[in-house]
């Protein structure tokens, strides 16, 4: 058994899966960094992702274009988070319940939309998902090539979001404003920053990322839609953000850790290891709890985290 695990092939496929499985956790986590830095806890990521997954899949199968599928997922993600933003920012509702409601509604609506569009079939509808790109030169490097450079385009785009997110947050005025409304909205308001507007923007960017990640699941990871397609990844992404202390690079490493846990479970199962696969399937969820245990005490939450802002209250 052990000799099967410590082979080059096993390790290479394990690490390649790690990168691929980290993507749908890293992307929404990066988006949530904007949202949470602006002081909004959007627990509705799970629902946003499943809405992105179903519309991405529907758009791709009707237009035949995977890129239009991705666009559909992104726009749906933005629309879905717009409702969340309205509840949390304008209506100043409790963000935890608002997020929960958006998740329950999203799960129901996604299943409904799927049933209405595709009906009940004996064979679920499938599409041809994004294929791995072979990058001349890079893909042929032994070991590193298969691990890092044989993925599909969306994986690379997602990893490009890491420096982009860092750049926007740390080097642009938009980033500065996002952090200001999250830390001290009253001071930001006094400085002439449109607190509500910036918070809306931060939630919408988060929705865009989450919608893209949802679409990734149906058009670049799987080739079909099921109701269990997201299965907690949205919540895990929120945990990763806290684990990463709201920093994009750390979020990437956190997501890779979760990607590794999922990949390990799949690869061990494929090898037929003598551990019941139900126990292996628990791995990412147990890790999420451990990550929260390690990180929550140390995390420096933004000053106005989950507190709605109004000029009329002090």
């Amino acid at each position: 058994m052990l000799e099967n695990i410590f082979t080059a092939n096993f390790l290479i496929s394990l690490l390649a899966s790690t990168v691929r499985l980290a993507t749908p956790i890293m992307t929404p986590a990066l988006g949530q960094i904007y949202t949470q830095r602006a002081g909004i806890l959007n627990l509705g990521v799970e629902g946003t992702m499943i809405m992105g997954a179903v519309t991405g899949f529907a758009a791709a199968s009707f237009t035949g274009s995977l890129w239009l599928g991705l666009l559909g997922g992104m726009l749906t993600g933005m629309f879905w988070s717009l409702i969340m933003a309205w509840l949390a920012i304008t209506m100043r509702a409790n963000q935890v319940i608002a997020g929960l409601g958006m998740n329950i509604l999203g799960a129901g609506l996604a299943a409904y939309i799927y049933r209405v569009i595709f009906g009940v079939r004996s064979l679920p509808p499938r599409i041809t998902p994004f294929q791995g790109l072979s990058l001349p030169g890079l893909s042929d490097i032994p070991v590193l090539g298969p691990i890092l450079f044989q993925h599909n385009a969306l994986v690379y785009l997602s990893f490009l979001l890491v420096p982009l997110t860092w750049f926007i947050l740390e080097r642009t005025t938009l980033g500065l404003k996002i952090k200001a409304v999250g830390e001290h909205p009253r001071a930001a308001d006094a400085k002439g920053v449109n607190v509500l507007g910036i918070r809306y923007a931060a939630v919408l960017i988060g929705g865009l990322y989450a919608g893209a990640a949802g679409a990734f699941m149906t058009i670049a990871y799987l080739n079909s839609f099921t109701e269990a397609v997201i299965s907690g990844r949205g919540y895990i992404a929120v945990a990763v953000v806290i684990f990463a202390r709201f920093l994009p690079a750390r979020a990437m490493w956190g997501a890779l850790l979760f990607g590794f846990a999922s990949a390990l479970q799949m690869r061990l199962q494929a090898l037929g290891v003598d551990i019941a696969n139900q126990l292996l399937l628990m791995l990412p969820y147990i890790m999420t709890i451990i990550a929260l245990i390690i990180a929550s005490n140390k995390a420096e939450f933004p000053g106005a985290y989950t507190i709605p802002y109004s000029r009329m209250e002090r």
């Binding site: 509840l87 929960l100 409601g101 958006m102 329950i104 799960a107 129901g108 299943a111 409904y112 209405v116």
Partner: peptide, 14 residues
Amino acid sequence: PYSIVDVIQGLIII
């Protein structure tokens, strides 16, 4: 489809 029941649940929370 039965999932309309889930949709109604979510709407009620909202």
